[in-house]
C-alpha cells in the first residue's frame, strides 16, 4: 500500500484527508516535530541530562500516521519508539522528556488518560491491547485499541498469542508493526524465514497488509481503514509498516558495529519527511518560507519543552512508596520510615 512514492509523486488516489491542506500540513508538522524532538533528546542524553533514549529517526510516518488515524477515545499502546504517536495524541514533550529523563511522573500524562505508557519489554504489551479491546467490546463501545511494536516483537510468543485471540474473539484492535528492519543488531532476514511479517496474520485468521511506512498518507489511510473495520465489529488487522531505523537502536548502541553506512545512506533517499515535503512542494502547498518558519517554530517548542523539563523539581525519594499499592501496606510503611531516616543528600 502506497500513495506517495519515494519522490513524493502521487501513485494512488489521494484519500479525502490528504486533499485538505490543513490536514496534510498537520501531518508534516508532526513528523518534523517528532524529528526535532528526537534530535533534542539525543543532545540531552549526550550531555548527561537525559537517560538512555530510543530515537525514532526515519520512522516518523509510522508513528504520526498511525496516531492521526485514531479517534481521541481510542487507546494507544506504544512501544518505546512511539514518541511521534504520543505527541500527536496529546502527550507533551515535557512529559516525554521527563519519562526518558528517569522520572515516572512523565507517564502520568494529562492526556490521553487511558493510553498506556511506552512498553520496554518487547512485545509484552500486545496482550494488553487485546485486553483493552475486549473491555471495549464487552461494553459495546465503538472504540478500538491500537498497538505499535517493532519487527523484533513478531518473533515473540506474546505477539502470536495476542493475534490469535484477536482473531477468535473478533476484537476491535489494530496491530501496527514498525518494521524498521533491525532488532538491535539482528536484521530482518535473520529474524524469520517468512516472506513478509504481514503474512503472520494469516495463521490467526486476520487480514494482514503491508504498507509503505515512509508514506504518512498511506499509513494514516491504512490504519483508518483498519479502525473503521474494527469499530464496525469487523475485527482486528495486522499492518506491517515497512520503514528503516536510520539511527542507532538507542543512545547506548553503536550501529556501526553491525551495519554498513552504505545501507543507511540508501534509506535516506526513502525517508518520510523529505518525501512528504517533496509532495507538498510539487503540489504548491509549501514554500521555502513555510519550511523555515516551521523549523524555527519546532526548534523553539522543543527548546522550551527541554527547559521546562530541566526546571522540574526532583521527586522526594520516599515517593518510591507512593502508588505502589492503592494504600501503603503497614510493613512497607516501616521501610519508608527507614528510608526517611537515612536520606542520602543529593550529589
Amino acid at each position: 500500500m502506497q500513495v506517495l512514492d519515494e519522490n513524493g509523486a502521487v501513485v494512488k488516489a489521494l484519500p479525502e484527508f490528504a486533499k485538505e491542506r490543513t490536514q496534510i500540513i498537520e501531518l508534516y508538522r508532526a513528523m518534523v516535530l517528532n524529528r526535532a524532538f528526537d534530535a533534542k533528546a539525543i543532545a540531552l542524553q549526550r550531555t548527561g541530562r537525559l537517560g538512555t533514549y530510543a530515537s525514532s529517526l526515519g520512522q516518523e510516518a509510522v508513528a504520526v500516521g498511525t496516531a492521526a488515524a485514531m479517534a481521541e477515545d481510542d487507546v494507544l499502546l506504544p512501544s518505546f519508539r512511539g514518541h511521534g504517536s504520543q505527541l500527536w495524541r496529546g502527550v507533551t514533550m515535557v512529559e516525554l522528556f521527563q519519562f526518558w529523563g528517569g522520572d515516572e511522573r512523565g507517564n502520568d500524562f494529562a492526556r490521553p488518560r487511558q493510553d498506556f505508557p511506552v512498553c520496554i519489554p518487547v512485545a509484552s504489551h500486545i496482550p494488553h491491547a487485546v485486553g483493552v479491546a475486549l473491555a471495549m467490546q464487552m461494553r459495546g463501545e465503538r472504540r478500538a485499541a491500537v498497538c505499535i511494536f517493532g519487527d523484533g516483537a513478531t518473533s515473540k510468543g506474546d505477539f502470536y498469542e495476542a493475534l490469535n485471540i484477536a482473531g477468535v474473539w473478533n476484537l476491535p484492535v489494530v496491530f501496527v508493526i514498525n518494521n524498521n528492519q533491525w532488532a538491535i543488531s539482528v536484521p530482518r532476514s535473520a529474524q524469520t524465514a517468512a516472506e513478509t511479517l504481514a503474512q503472520k496474520a494469516i495463521a490467526a485468521g486476520l487480514p494482514g497488509i503491508q504498507v509503505d511506512g515512509n508514506d504518512v498518507v498511506a499509513m494514516r489511510y491504512s490504519v483508518e481503514q483498519a479502525l473503521d473495520r474494527a469499530r464496525a465489529d469487523g475485527g482486528a488487522t495486522l499492518i506491517e509498516a515497512l520503514t528503516y531505523r536510520m539511527g542507532d537502536h538507542t543512545t547506548a548502541d553503536d550501529a556501526s558495529r553491525y551495519r554498513d553506512d552504505a545501507d543507511v545512506s540508501h534509506h535516506w533517499k526513502l525517508e518520510p519527511v523529505a518525501r512528504l515535503r517533496s509532495y507538498l512542494q510539487q503540489a504548491g502547498l509549501w514554500t521555502r518560507e513555510d519550511e523555515e518558519s516551521l523549523l524555527k517554530e519546532c526548534a523553539k517548542d522543543v527548546e522550551s519543552a527541554a527547559q521546562a523539563y530541566l526546571d522540574i523539581p526532583g521527586r522526594s525519594p520516599e515517593s518510591i512508596f507512593d502508588h505502589l499499592y492503592y494504600s501503603l501496606p503497614a510493613p512497607l510503611a516501616a521501610q519508608r520510615s527507614a528510608m526517611l531516616a537515612e536520606q542520602i543528600p543529593d550529589a
Binding site: 487507546v75 499502546l77 487511558q114 498506556f116 509484552s124 504489551h125 500486545i126 496482550p127 494488553h128 491491547a129 487485546v130 485486553g131 483493552v132 479491546a133 475486549l134 473491555a135 471495549m136 464487552m138 485499541a145 510468543g157 506474546d158 498469542e161 495476542a162 490469535n164 485471540i165 477468535v168
Partner: peptide, 28 residues
C-alpha cells in the same frame, strides 16, 4: 459467555489480557 470466557491455551496471554482489561476498569 460474555463474562465467563474460555480462553485458548495461552497463559501469558491470559495474564496480559487481564492487565488490559483491568486498566480499562474491568475486574478479571
Amino acid at each position: 459467555a460474555r463474562r465467563v470466557r474460555d480462553t485458548p491455551l495461552s497463559e501469558a496471554l491470559i495474564a496480559g489480557m487481564s492487565i488490559g482489561l483491568a486498566a480499562q476498569g474491568m475486574r478479571p
